[in-house]
Amino acid sequence: MKFFTSFRKKSPWILHYNAGSCNGCDIEILAALGPKFDLERFGVINTGNPKQSDIFLVTGPVTYRSRERLVELYSQIPEPKVVIAVGSCTTTGGVFRGMYNVEDGIDQYIPVDVYVPGCASTPQLIIDAIVKALEILENKSKEIEKPFKLFGSVETIGNKLSRLNMAKRVKHD
């Protein structure tokens, strides 16, 4: 078991979803994956499949139509997972804050671990965020692998889930 977990840290795959951004951050993510900034040296690969991903890169201030997809994708990523909000509008709504079809940031819908500022975020910032996310991912994996009792006084599953932020915190309206 330890054999496999040692590899997980070295190769986190990312899933990218555009929830209504202007494309600026998306092309910077592509540029960060490209040869000059070379995000792939951390073992990162851009994958289109949520079930194989560890890091969820979201851009854009959640539009009305994309919010269901956002929550759906988030729930399909297996634990442990890290969510990175890339760009000003993803963290707070930014320039789109208050527009009629916009929900002012993704943390209204899914829990976020790393916030990246900038309009548009530069590749350097995105790399910093991914490195930070690797740290968080490792901590989360360690937390999950800690032994616990199903019944008894040490810790129940419910407590463990809420401690790990894994209980459903998704807002329904």
Binding site: P61, G98, N101
Partner: peptide, 9 residues
């Protein structure tokens, strides 16, 4: 999917 409402704003 990406409609935000820039024209109105």
């Amino acid at each position: 999917f990406v409609h935000r409402g820039v024209e109105l704003a």
